[in-house]
Structure formats: structure tokens, C-alpha cells
Nucleic acid binder design. Sequence first.
RNA 1: GCCGGGAUGGCGGAAUUGGUAGACGCACGGGACUCAAAAUCCCGCGGUGGCAACACCAUGAGAGUUCGAUUCUCUCUCCCGGCACCA
Length: 743
Amino acid sequence: MQQKYNPQLIEREAQQYWDASGAFRAVESPGKPKYYCLSMFPYPSGKLHMGHVRNYTIGDVLTRYHRMNGRNVLQPMGWDAFGLPAENAAMANGVPPAKWTYDNISYMKGQLKSLGFAIDWSRELATCQPAYYRWNQWLFLRMLEKGLVYKKSGIVNWDPVDKTVLANEQVIDGRGWRTGALVEKREIPMYYMAITKYADELLGALDTLPGWPERVKTMQANWIGKSYGVRFAFPYELGGKREKLWVFTTRADTIMGVTFCAVAAEHPLATHAARGNPKLAAFVEECKRGSVMEADLATIEKKGMPTGISVVHPLTGEKVPLWVGNYVLMGYGEGAVMGVPGHDQRDFEFAQQYGLPIKPVIRPAEGKLELPLKAAYLEYGVCFNSGRYDGLGYPQAVDAVAADLKAKGLGEKQVLWRLRDWGISRQRYWGTPIPIIHCPACGDVPVPDKDLPVVLPEDCVPDGTGNPLAKRADFVDTKCPKCGKAAKRETDTMDTFVDSSWYYARYACADNAQGMVDRRVDYWLPVDQYIGGIEHAILHLLYSRFWTKVMRDLGLFKVDEPFTNLLTQGMVLNDIYFRQSDGGRITYYNPAEVEAENGGATLKADGQPVESGGMGTMSKSKNNGVDPQELIDHYGADIARFFMMFTSPPEDTLVWSDAGVEGASRFLRRLWNYCLKFEGGGGPAADPTLQKAVRLEIHSVLKQANYDIARHQFNTVASAAMKILNALEKLPAIDREVAPEGL
RNA sequence: GCCGGGAUGGCGGAAUUGGUAGACGCACGGGACUCAAAAUCCCGCGGUGGCAACACCAUGAGAGUUCGAUUCUCUCUCCCGGCACCA
């Protein structure tokens, strides 16, 4: 044993030994209880950040804990390798996304290795490898056959200057990030996965997941958003033709309070009305500007304009004016809503703004409704002012209204899901090609299985003006698999969430070239412990659950749910410092360059003060990241890892502290010194009574520590470790079995 | 705007089911050892007043329930995550 604590030496020796002996290779052994410990795989952005170190350290602690408890543990690692940043890097540096990605993977893999994680690298995968993404294509085709994939139009952000589709992230204040042009909404054909067919099961099965945090389950339940309502129609006549305007409402009891209807700018009725009405046409155009993000739509100023068209109230027969509203979403329900200003706050504000009548029809069951209304009355109450529905409560009124609408053939009760089908088409290069061929004669033809994978050329360099794949004749031009005549390949690629929806299963059989998965998944699945950021609480985890169920229904899996236990780790935060120039430009300074004193802070370089921007997630934009590599180089991996576990419970945010790292380092050196003392052996025999007492203490603390690890209470483990160490140091020598190896 | 979460000393946090708020650690201060420093060890460490015993105040703000609230209820403020094309 080394006399001085030398992490570089110790860690290199240990890591070389682990590598050479294949210490972390997981082998299926049916007799042995398995434990599949999975951390969310990283996007190969360039180098590891603190969030990665934290994520993988938590996973590694659990991995080693369960190994020591005799489980057959699998901890794999891979790369979520498709995505937008690679294309951005390509534009900035002229390097193909493939090269950039593979270089990053190679560098980051080295970093992960130097952290000494107990990873089975023999199962490594990268989603940008044809050997992986061919199975995205294969399953897409199976889903197409089962009607779980279909084509319809969707709305995207369109940059009119670059003539390209933009991701939400590339739209800044309604303008394209490169061109500054006002972004438009544009409708294009896209492929969708019918996740709504599984909505009921995805919602119900949340109850079968006791190992998931309550808040994640609540968020998913709200996202799926099962609501019971009534779908009904307002009849109207247009150009002599009788038509119906369909809407959905969860408040059919307020139907007698309808004073207007509104449609989205993209609704066919709006388009029709805009013809020959230049003012309306201009308004419709204005609505089509701006981003498609729901957060933007929900906060914009509500605007509308009358179409001049009237529709007919299905129950009263009264004329109802039809408006175009910028807050009506084409993607939700029918792209049209009934307007009940008395009982919907958004409608109330809209009616006030445009002088539309407000007709209250619901009053509290006891007491009076204060009139005139100062705000919409949103409570469930009793109908009044509603003809034959007067006096009915919410459920009775909804039943009665639904029955009457049904009798007229104008509507009925319906379950509405907030969840929408998953649009997977991306007009981008660096992703899984969608395996479809467009034939002028046969239409959209699936690529036959024998021609999979449709390989993505790896030498394209995007320039920001649309998908480079579309410019590659060698990719696009092909023959129709049906008729053999000249045809064109689909150039859209898949959403990267497809890649991450099933990677956990591929780890069980990453070497299988014949199939997507094989029977080894029956041994390893489900994942016993999944660890990752809370930011994935909804989308990634929901898509994964959906794919798991689809794969189960295709007979590929026996499991219903992919992840038995879920740990959502907190963010890593650090101080933010900046200076603002006279022109308003803000320059951020890394906390490492700043000297913080009580109350103020100065830049080390010039001694002048800097402003504090509080605390925030480590990010490039705020220049407040700490490079884990420096930490590893300076203190060694064990201290970096120990600090991560020691300083804050895994599910809470972790605030960076140089002093905390220093403290963690001191603790480990202390432990090292104790071990030296122990290795040296001997020393004067301690008072046997004291020795026994301390041993009892250690046992009880270790027991508590095990219990705490099982509950992910790592912070208390750190405390327990401290107590053990304090106790150990009081003894000249103790039994090996109670030495703190278990920590 | 909507959904979810959070706020306790200088800092991370503890208080296990409504019962002594601040465990444990970090940082800091004092002391021991040392020519000196590092390391290590000992003591102190929410605020105000007091030599002290002790007293009063204090868990983001305000109200409520209770003998008793960090814990339960309501309202509000601020912060964080998500909002379907960042991953």
C-alpha cells in the first residue's frame, strides 16, 4: 500500500486491473438474481459535464452496492448519437456530423473510463450506427403494417429565407436564429405514431409503478390528460351546401351560454372566409406567423376577427357568429371551439375585448351569482337561464345535453385525451432515415425488410438551407420495390426520441445482427433501476413506455413496463457572475475567475467588481460550468465521485462548492490514513469493553447505511460514513468484516 | 398561461407518523502540536440581549386548524423542470 494518497496511481492500477479481468462484464446466469442498473445514455456533445458525472456516479454506487449483495448486475453504456447539435457543429466547422459525433464519443468514453465506473463496455452501442437504427426502421415498418404508424399533415416552423424547417429551439422571439426572419407556420405531411391508442394503458399502468416518484407519475397522468366531454357540431350553410362545424367541450353544461364560435387560422372555414375579405386574410396570415410552441401560444395576446359567417346553435337554433382566434389550436381536438364567456376565462377576456355578449348560465348551488360577472364563473354549479336544463347539476346537465344532441344526430359523449399522436418526421439530416419510397405510380411504398437498413450517408455537411439528404441524388434516386420504376426515397428522418425509446433493451443483446432483440431480454428486462434527469419525466419516459408496449404486442418482449424503479436526479448548479457594458451587452465570468467576498465579488484578473446573477444550472451560455476533467485530474475520480454523493441527496439540486470538494478530499485522505494504520496492524490493545461498544456502534450504523442506500438516502450515508470513521479512529485495530468497505 | 416540484444558519442539508428546529458534514473562528507551514487533534459556531444561568426571536410572506405546525389547509412571492422539433 502506498504511503501517500496518490489517486492517479491507485485509480490507474485499479482500472487497468478491471479492464484486464473483465470485472464488469455481465453474463446471463439464469440461476442468479439479476439487477439491471441503467443510467440515461449521454448525448455526445463533446465532453462530459457535471450532470453526467452525477448521473453515472449515482448509478455506479447502486451498481456496486447490489454487486456486493450478490446480484448479477448489468450496467451498460451507450450514446444517444443522433441530433441537432451535430448539425450545428457541422455548420460552424464544416465537419460532417458523423465525424464530429464519433470523435466526441471517443473522447467522452475515455473520460467515463477514467472515472472508473463499473460499466460493461462490451455492450456499448451508438444510435447512429446502422446496426442500431436499422431496427428503428424495422419496427417502424411493423407499426405501419399494424396501423400504428400513419401519415397526416402537421405544422412546423418555417424559415422563409433559408427555406428550411426550424426546431423550436432555433426560433428566438418568433424569428429564425440564423436569418432573423419572421418564422411562419407551415403544414407538411408527416408520419405519426399512434400513441393515443395506448393512452388508456399508459395512464392505468402508472398505478403498477410503485418504484416511480409520485410527481413523475402525476406529470405523466396530467400529460395524457383523460377528460370526459361531448363532441358536437354547429350546422351551417356555405354556398348552398350544408356543413357541420365540430367542436369538443368538457363543459357541455354551459352549452346554453354559447355566444360565439372560434376557429384556428389554419381551419378550412377561416381559409374560405378569408377569400374576398382582405382584412381577414391579413389577420389569418398574421396568425400564421410566430412559433408553434404551446408556451408561446398560451401567453400571446388573444386576438380575433369575425369571419362574417354564422353557424347555428345545435339546441336553440340561434345564429352564432363565427370568429377566427389566434388562441385556437389546429392541433387540438377539432381546431374549433365554442365560446362561453360566462364560464371560461379565456372566452371571457375575448368577449370583453371584442364586445361580444356574455351570457351566464351556471350559478352556485347555494347562494347567488354576482352580476354582472367580473370574471368567468368556473365552478361546477347549477344551470339557469338554460331552458329545459334549468336546475340541473353538472353531471345531469351534461347527460341531458348529450342525449339531446345525439337525438338530433349532432353529437355525443366522448373521451378526449390531451395526449396527441407522436409526429416522428424530421426534415433533418442527422437521424434515422424513414424507410419509405415514393413511387409516382404506386404511392408511398415501404422499403422491404431485405433492403434494411436504409443507410444514412455519413459525409454530408449541412449548411442550414434544408435537409442535405434531399440534395443527394445517390440517396434519393432509387427504384420502386413494387413496380421497379424510378422512384424517390423519403428524405425525412426520425425524431431522436425514437432512438432512445428502446435502447435499454438493445443492451441485452447488442451483438445480435439477426434481430432487434432476442430471448436474452427475458433475463435482463425490465430495468430494475433507471437513473436520469427530471427533465425527461414526461416525453422520453412516456415514449419509452409506449414502445415497450408496442414491442410486447409484437411478441418481442414479455414485460409491460420498461423501468421498475426510477430515480430522477437533481440539477448541478453554480454561481453566475457577469458584467453589463454600457451598450447593454452582458459578459459572463466563470466562478473560477471570480473572488467572492462577503457581500461582493471581484474578477481575479483586474480586481474590479462583477455582478452576481444568483445560482443557475451549469451551462455554456452562463459560463458557470466546472469541467469535470479538471476535477478528475486534480483530485482523482474517487474524490470527484465522493463529492457528488456526499454533498447533496441525489434527487435534490446540487450546488457546486470548491470548499465542498476540498472537504470531500480531506475525508478520503483521512480514510486512507486509517487504512494505513489498519494495514500496519498491532498497536496497543484497546480496552476490550470500549472495543465492543464501538463495534456495536459500527454495526448499527452500517445497518442504517444499508437501509438508507436502499431508499436512496445517500446524504445520511455520508453522515454514517463519518460516524464510522470517527469510531474506527478510536480503535487501534478492528475486525476486517466491519471495516467500511461496504461504503 | 398550463402541469409538476422547491424555499430551513455563511453553505449542503437533518428533524423517520403533528411533539426539544438546525442531526451530520462543509466553511469559518479560537486553541494544541510545530522554528514555521501543511496534516492531525480539541473547543466553539442561527440571530438579538447577557459575564453567566438564561430570555426572546427564527423554517420564503400572510392567514387558518391544533394544547402544540418545518410538517396539515388556504392565499401570495420568488426559484427550478416540462409544455410535444434541445436532448
